[in-house]
């Protein structure tokens, strides 16, 4: 954001001065300062994206590098596997449920905290604190709590409940629609992972919503009140529309977190029986670094990148457009 302003100013000044911009240190300096970060980004982000894409089109599927051209064969192989098809189902189900839950819980908590209560700072900290914990720690703790033999099921049992939930060990689907090799539906096991993930990230949604709520001018609410709107009407017609850009921000950030999710799965459930809790990132890691099928692993990574880009690029374009108009 800060960086983008410098060249704009520069462009204006050169237009004022004449057609052919002359070399001056004044103009060169901002570009020079950008070079190190551009170089690092170029190599470590874009260079390696390009490299992964290239590897995914080769036959490098053992320890010994083999850069002969394979076309889209690795993609075809990967898409044919039961495991990757399960991964795609899981990541879509997980991402949708994760974001919806985080938004609802986050907004709810933000509204509660925004009620000018006492010790607001304390509550804010409590809700946002799980975010400070590593996903691996969350995963280990929740895997203990939701283990059907040990964790919360013991409490449920003490209440005299039967038919206790199997949590992340369940291999059931709701609904259960057989499509090709795999079953479509919500894997019950993912609900357990979802609980852990939402526990960790809804505090973040709360924090952003809280900032959004504080940014709504008091006059708007007052105007609504003067017009005779009750608290519900004010919320639906005034506050919620004002939070639209906040919601977009949360959705984009949580989508990125969700698509990349690895540590939580790795620590909490592993791929799970019948891959009910497997994710593309997990599959990519095992394919690449345990099976040493580098080209197939790269293909999974590229599919993941495309999914990520499908969410983030429209967002980036819209922010750039907004910035340009302003």
């Amino acid at each position: 954001m800060v960086n983008s302003e410098v060249p704009v100013q520069n462009a204006k000044s050169s237009v004022l001065r004449g057609k052919r911009p002359k070399f001056t240190w004044d103009r060169a300096f901002p570009i020079l300062t950008l070079v190190p970060s551009l170089a690092a980004l170029g190599v470590f982000v874009y260079g390696f994206i390009f490299w992964s894409g290239y590897v995914s089109l080769t036959n490098w599927n053992s320890f010994i590098p083999n850069f002969s051209f394979a076309g889209l064969r690795n993609y075809v192989l990967v898409f044919q596997t039961f495991r990757f098809q399960s991964d795609l189902r899981n990541i879509v189900v997980f991402t949708v449920l994760f974001i919806v839950s985080c938004l609802i819980i986050g907004l709810f908590l933000a509204i509660l905290v925004d009620q000018k209560i006492r010790m607001e700072g304390l509550f804010r900290s409590i809700f946002i604190f799980p975010m400070a914990i590593s996903f691996v720690v969350t995963g280990v703790i929740w895997s203990w709590m939701l283990n059907p033999e040990t964790g919360v099921n013991l409490i449920l049992k003490a209440f005299g409940l039967h038919h206790l939930p199997q949590w992340f060990l369940s291999t059931r689907f709701v609904p259960n629609i057989q499509v090709g090799q795999i079953q479509l539906g919500i894997p019950i096991a993912l609900i357990a992972v979802l609980i852990a993930a939402v526990w960790q990230m809804s505090g973040f949604a709360m924090a952003v919503y809280l900032a959004g709520l504080r940014g709504i001018p008091e006059e708007l609410k007052e105007a609504a009140r003067v017009d005779g709107a009750g608290p519900w009407r004010t919320f639906w017609s005034v506050i919620l529309p004002q939070l639209r850009s906040t919601t977009t921000t949360i959705v984009i950030i949580l989508t990125a977190a969700s698509l990349k999710i690895f540590g939580l799965i790795y620590a909490m459930t592993g791929p799970g029986q019948e891959f009910v809790t497997d994710m593309p990132s997990m599959n990519m890691f095992q394919t690449t670094f345990q099976a040493n099928q580098f080209a197939q692993g790269a293909a999974i990574a590229i599919v993941l990148l495309i999914m990520m880009a499908a969410f983030t690029v429209p967002y980036l374009i819209s922010t750039i457009k907004q910035g340009g108009d302003a």
């Binding site: 070079v35 551009l38 170089a39 170029g42 190599v43 874009y46 260079g47 390009f50 490299w51």
Partner: peptide, 11 residues
Amino acid sequence: TAMIALSAVGL
């Protein structure tokens, strides 16, 4: 250009 040059060096 810088990016391509750099990645080429890397490769």
